[in-house]
Amino acid sequence: MSEKLKSTIKNIGIPRFVIVTMLIVIYIAAYFLKLNVPRLLSDNLVRMGMNGVLVLAMVPGILSGTGLNFGLPLGIICGILGGLLSIELQMTGIVGFLVAMMCSIPIAIIAGYFYGKLLNRVKGSEMMVGTYVGFSIVSLMCIGWLVMPFKSDAIRWPIGEGLRTTIALTDFYDKVLNDFLQFTIFGVTVPTGLLLFFFMMCLFVFLFLRTKTGMAIRATGSSNKFSKASGIDVDKSRMIATVLSTALGAIGILVYAQSYGFFQLYTAPLMMGFAAVAAILLGGASAHNAKITHVLLGVFVFQGLLLVALPVANVIFPQGNLSEVMRVIVQYGIILYALTKAGGGQ
C-alpha cells in the first residue's frame, strides 16, 4: 500500500503533490475561517479561464523542443497591439473582441516568424535567449507606447504624451466572454463563455497536435535525429510551433484583458511569461513534455493557490502580502525544479 502511495507520489512529482495538497488544505481552511467558499470557487474559475490561453501557449514550444517559452511577452505585446487597434477602430462588444483577435493574430504570426528564425539559430540556448527577447521587446515597446500615434481618448493620456498605463475596456469589450451564458449553481458563478472559449482553444491545440504537422512537431521535440531520419524538416516544425505559441500568447492576453477589464501597458507584461511557465509545470509538464491536461490542471491549481491563499493568509496573517510572497516562491521554485530535472547534467 505505502509502496503504491510512494510510486503515485513519484509519478505526480513531489512539488506537484505538495502544491495540490496545499490548495486543498487552503480551501478547507477557507471553509473553517468562514470565508465564502462558493465565491472563491467562482473567482477561481474566472482566473482559470482568463489565464488559461496564456498557459496553453506553452504547449507547442515545449513539444517542439524549444523548451519553456520565456519569450511569451512577445506574443502578449502583439495581442495588446491588436486590442488597441480594435479600440482605435471604435469596435465594441463581441465584435470588438473578434476584431482585436483578427488584428493581433497576423502581427503575432509575423513576430513569431522572426522569433522562430532566431530560435532556430540559437539551438540549446532557447530559454535564455527567449527570456531576453521578451525583456527587450517589452522595454522597447515602453518607448513605443510613448510615441505611437493612437488617437482614441480611451488610449491616450488626456494631457501629456503617450498612451495610458492602464486602458479600461468598460466601453469596449469588458467581460464579453465572461458574461456569455453565465449562470450560478450552488452559489458558484460559472463564466460559461470564458471557459467555453478556453476549452475550444484547448480542443483546437489538441486536434492540431494530431494532424500530420502536429505529429511532426511532436517528433521534432522528442528527437531531432529521429525526425531528420523520418524526412521531417526540423527547423520548419520548430518554426510552426513558435508561431503558434506566439499567436496563442496574443489571444491569451486578449482573453485576460477582457476578463480583467484593462490592458496594462509598459512594464506590466515583463514577468507574465514566468507565471504561465510555472502554471503548466505545476500541472505536470516538464521542459520536454506537455499535455492539454497539464494546462487545465496547472492553471486551475496555480491560480487557485494565488486567489484563495490571499484571503486565507490575510485572516491568519493580517500584516503584509503573504500570498504575493508565496506566489514568488512557488512560481520560481517550480521553474527551478523543472530546470534541474531537465538536467543537462552529466
Binding site: 500530420k212 511532426a216 511532436r218 522528442s222 531520419a229 523520418s230 524526412g231
Partner: peptide
C-alpha cells in the same frame, strides 16, 4: 528504408507508443 545502428537516438521516439513509432515515418512520407 533504414534501420539505424543508433537505435535509441535515430531509431525510436522513446516517449511515444509502439503504434506511433511504427507509423510516424509513413505518415510524414
Amino acid at each position: 528504408a533504414f534501420v539505424s545502428e543508433d537505435r535509441k537516438g535515430v531509431g525510436l521516439l522513446l516517449d511515444e507508443g509502439i503504434d506511433i513509432n511504427i507509423t510516424v515515418t509513413s505518415i510524414q512520407v
